[in-house]
Each structure stands twice: as structure tokens, then as C-alpha cells.
Amino acid sequence: MSDLDRTDRAILAEIQRDGRISNARLAERVGLSETPCARRLKRLEADGYIEGYRAVLSRTALGLGVVAFCLVRFSLHDRSLANRFERDVQGLPRIVACHNVSGTADYLLQIVSRDLDDYGVFMRDVVRALPGVTSVESILSLNEVKRYVGLPLP
């Protein structure tokens, strides 16, 4: 991050707010002409500061009314078992995030479902059947207070 100047940071901030911003509008917002702005954006992409672009979808419009966090515990800590678990989780679209964590759990999953019944079936038939899982604890989100809007840029 130390090789980023103020203009690079401004570009990153703007595209986090609007990934579909035109180069002309981006250049205007960061105080550059279009060619140098496009060049900087390509460099930021090539240097790995920008991993990709995506749309933010509405859970409500898609009928996904439940967001749950699930603490997953293993009784046996075996690398091959953990690898299988992680590989299987990658193939489950309802699990929108998975973190290997420290503390009393081994993994923290973020899961979306249509409703509580749908979530219960998914937990019983899918999550509890994943390799290595010996216990799970669900934490239901009652209200999303702050949504992920991007990474902080100093």
C-alpha cells in the first residue's frame, strides 16, 4: 500500500463506490485526464489491488430473508479433513463466506436462506453432514446494521 499515492487511493475509493463508473467520470472525480486515469486503473488491476468487479444483489428481491452465522467445530483436527471441508464449502452457494477462525470454533460460515425452515433443513442435511463437523452453533442476524461497502483506504 505504500507505493500508492493520493490519486491511486482516490481511484480505488471511487471504484469501490461504483464499479461501473465510466473512465471519463472517474477521471473527472480524481482530477486526471482520461488517458492517465485509464493507465493508472490498468496498473492497479495488474498490480493486484483490484481483484475484480461485481454487482451487489438484493437479498430481499431474491427471496433470501435469513442471514445466519454458523460456528462449526471439529473434534479431530486433521489437515486432510479440513481440506475436504473447505473444498466442499466452496461448492455450496448458500454459504456466502467461510473463515477459518481461532477460539472455540474452527470455522465461521455466513449462510443465506429463504426462511427459518429452509435454514433448518440446510443445517440438518448439508452443514452437519460436511466432513469433520461435530457441532454447529447458529447465530441469526436480526438486522443488518452495516453492510460491507469496501475496504478502508488510508
Rank of each mutant, 00 (worst) to 15 (best):
R87Q: 14
R9L: 12
A38R: 10
A24M: 06
L108W: 02
T104A: 13
R17C: 03
V112A: 03
I11F: 08
R87N: 12
E28R: 10
T7R: 15
S113N: 02
R114W: 02
D106G: 09
C37Q: 14
T104F: 05
F74T: 09
L26D: 07
L76W: 13
A13H: 08
Q110E: 08
R54Q: 05
E14I: 08
Y53T: 06
S141N: 11
A24H: 05
L32V: 07
R20K: 15
Y53F: 10
A10R: 15
R73M: 04
G132Q: 08
K42W: 05
A10W: 13
L64D: 00
G91E: 08
M123L: 06
I50N: 10
I111G: 00
L62Q: 12
Q16V: 06
L116W: 02
R40E: 09
V126S: 00
D3T: 13
G103C: 11
E86Y: 11
E144C: 11
F69I: 04
E144A: 15
A105F: 08
I111V: 09
V136T: 08
T60A: 05
L140S: 04
R17S: 04
E34R: 15
R17E: 06
S80A: 15
D106Y: 11
L41D: 08
E144F: 09
R114F: 04
G103F: 11
D8I: 11
V133A: 01
G132S: 09
G31I: 11
E28I: 07
G19D: 01
G19V: 05
D118I: 02
V67Y: 03
D117C: 03
V127W: 00
G120C: 01
